[in-house]
Amino acid sequence: MKHQWLSFLWAGALAWVLLGCAKSVSPAADGKFTGFVAPANFPKPVYDIPAYPVTQAGFELGRKLFYDARLSRDNTISCGSCHIQGAAFTHHGHDVSHGIEDRLGKRNAPALQNMAWYTSFMWDGGVGHLDMQPIAPIENPVEMDESLASVIAKLKASADYPPLFEKAFGSRDISSARMLQAMSQFMNMLVSANSKYDRVMRKEGDSFTADEQAGYELFKARCATCHQEPLFTNQQFMNNGIGIGPNDDKGRYDISLIEKDKYTFKVPSLRNVMITAPYMHDGRLRTIDAVLRHYAEEVQASPNLAPGLNSGGRLGIPLTANERLRIKAFLATLTDDSFIRNPAFAEQ
């Protein structure tokens, strides 16, 4: 354990030297644990951090759980199998997720970032509290196919976990509450707020190029009603006209049973969007160019299409070739290297 901590410190120091810029916003990046720190350009978190603060031992326990395949029935799949740090915790390259025994899901794994600010989780908002989120993949037959009760039993029977629960919570008792709180501590620390965009916004010495600036203006005018700053999502459920998929996924409707929610999905954050391909809830669009072409030329009249995408019968958002290039240049400023390389977030 001590050894591990030392190497962690080393890796942290190395990253600090390499990245230089990993200052206050990525609290664990320089190896010194500072707990949860809300970035200056972000609103107040939704998760009740004061009531359930992040401790170093809790965070480390949560990280171990996140990367532990024992959370799946046959001990083969961890959360980290589908949520890969280098791809902003998406399932890089997979349109829909791959679970236990190669079973396929119906949705694309979203980036895991800034979850302390989210009011709901999943493309359909089916989960309302971060603590309850891990139960969904654990118990989903096409993901980890396990039961929460059985995971708790495995952890209790293990040699490695009881001392870690003691470190984090003061006794060796292992309960679902402690396990899920630790996982929330890890996930709450996954704050991505150190992209070039953030540094420009916080006036930390960076500035946009002319193209990035022009792209930012276009983005604010045409995209930001839904992809609202600074999280780049307004957390609403919308239909952006990509058309009904072959599996007839009704999105939010399957949760709410309300007609106006049919075929709507949670507006995804666009932070780190350049490294989270493929796109949309079922990963049907492989590139950002395809996404921009979709908005400009291919928006389909669909039930519950967002009103903003239909101006008097003209569907979509007009975007010239030049404008698309500029928006792309802006979207590239949302990539946060210190987040995807932060050694504290990696499997130890």
Binding site: D48, A51, Y52, G128, H129, D131, M132, I135, S147, L148, A149, S150, I152, S175, S176, A177, L180, Q181, S184
Partner: peptide
């Protein structure tokens, strides 16, 4: 809608048999 720590006993999803 409460955190897991405020769901004891019969409210704890780990307490249901598979």
């Amino acid at each position: 809608t409460r955190p897991i720590g405020e769901r004891p006993g019969v409210l704890d999803p780990a307490n249901y048999p598979a």
